[in-house]
Design a protein around this nucleic acid. Structure first.
Lengths: 270, 270
DNA sequence: TTGCTCAACTTGTTGGTACAAGCTCAGCTT
DNA sequence: AAGCTGAGCTTGTACCAACAAGTTGAGCAA
């Protein structure tokens, strides 16, 4: 009742790759070679079915490979398009950061300097520390922390989320940490003014595919990973904060500058 | 001839999510809640078809979502299993690194200390600098560089690749750079001994999905991104090297330590 | 001119079938 | 005992059909 039409190779007998892979590879080559430029539309599924003599499902499998690799995106009614990447540089180790580390101000300034429009929403909570945070703050698992959460946008595009946890014992000395709303001068400056100075920090950087929650908050397209940046800040005596920043991988690059870079900076022609 | 059997909601009328998403979400919940532990096998596609009253295509779509997110993996004949993650820590900013930055030695030592068995293949080439590298080395696009390429394994699992480019002008002063085979004392120590000292470096960290080439070299499973680490080293006068390390995102985490961390290190009980 | 409707495109979802190919193990053969 | 073979499980590839839903633009109506 269902004839399995001729599965023999038509291509000279050399290929062992499945057809959907051939579709993906061919399209990838076209994109790499500039046939389809970033932002350009790809042929429709129907066109590709004709070009590759394949069924719609097979063509879609091939396209799906490229979507999962973040090379193209699709939208219903519009078609497939080559993704264009725009990267924002994040300076993670400027000296200023030790004294005034990533106050919301530094973020706004950076973005504005790049000619873009920053925007953020803000929230304060009293929560129990997740295992991951408790370890880094050296407090008991399940103990309470102040969570200051920030959701950041650039030109209304979701860019990153930032969750900073402060240990409970800090609240007595720094009650304004629990105040809802921004602390104008920056929390770290506020802490410094109280004699709690951050003298060092440890950064951890990892990457993975986003959770559905993260994908929702950051409006992350299929095939785009997140960059996870954890900064634990220390006074001379104890850990005083743990900041977890979740960045869209397609939009951000982190920079660290260590040692003497005068050779790089002396003629910034590029 | 083809009756579209009853597309009405059976689920109380509340859901608007497509069925394959429901499958993905349900399985994700099961995994998060520990019903299926890391390494455990998931029910077969047939089982899931029964459980969700869905066609094989639909079930596969749902599973495919989780595969693309790196949460599960599949192998033909064996079934689907929950991925387990094992992370290796990479210290990117230890003070020693400024004087003796990532010689193969540091890598081998780190791995051996972790009780693992390191292994690497090595290659030297004279190539034209890619645009990306040429910019960082401040040489003309298309000019030649020495490429020292390293493919690293831990317990025979592909772990990372490292490509270090040296500008052509360095060869005269440091001819051994073109020697095939490892330079025992480490290239940076070798350069230092010639009076070419690396006094600072700039690191850039980005993430994306691997190219097919990278996926092949590092044996990267679907749904796993790569971590791209570029280190440009400077003497007091010029850039002297540019190292691009490609790391499997599921196996690596990078660490930077800046400032005074005595408070962290004084009781390393955890 | 303005605004609406609808046809004609696009991708998204879901159902089905058939066969290929990898893995395991029981059970037979040697 | 050792080794082979094949049944029966698994996922992988490829095809077909139907309808849902988002987008665009031509063309008609106010």
């Amino acid at each position: 009742m269902y004839q399995q039409v001729d599965r023999v190779r038509h291509d000279g007998g050399m290929s062992k790759q499945p057809k959907y892979q051939q579709v993906a590879d061919a399209l990838r080559r076209d994109i790499d070679s500039g046939t389809y430029e970033p932002g350009a539309r790809l042929p429709s599924e129907s066109d590709l079915m004709a070009r590759f003599d394949a069924s719609r499902n097979t063509v879609r499998s091939g396209l799906n490979v490229l979507v999962s690799q973040g090379l193209i995106s699709s939208s219903q009614g519009l078609g497939y398009a080559v993704r264009k990447h725009e990267v924002f540089e994040l300076n993670a180790s400027r000296f200023e950061n030790l004294t005034f580390p990533q106050n919301g101000d530094a973020y706004s300034t950076d973005v504005t300097n790049a000619g873009r429009r920053p925007h953020q929403t803000f929230r304060v909570e009293l929560t129990t520390a997740p295992e991951y945070v408790a370890q880094r703050l050296k407090v008991d698992a399940g103990s309470r922390t102040v969570l200051r959460f920030c959701h950041r946008f650039v030109d209304d595009v979701p860019w990153s989320t930032q969750a900073t946890h402060y240990p409970e014992w800090l609240i007595e000395q720094a009650p304004r940490l629990t105040e809802p709303g921004d602390i104008a001068e920056g929390t770290t400056r506020y802490l410094t003014s109280l004699g709690i100075e951050q003298v060092g920090y440890a950064d951890e950087i990892a990457t993975r595919m986003p959770t559905p929650e993260e994908a929702r908050l950051l409006d992350i397209a299929p095939g785009v990973p997140v960059l996870l940046w954890t900064r634990t800040g220390y006074s001379t005596e104890k850990p005083i904060r743990c900041t977890i920043t979740t960045l869209r991988g397609d939009l951000n690059r982190m920079n660290y500058e260590i040692g003497d870079l005068s050779a790089r900076d002396e003629n910034e022609s590029q």
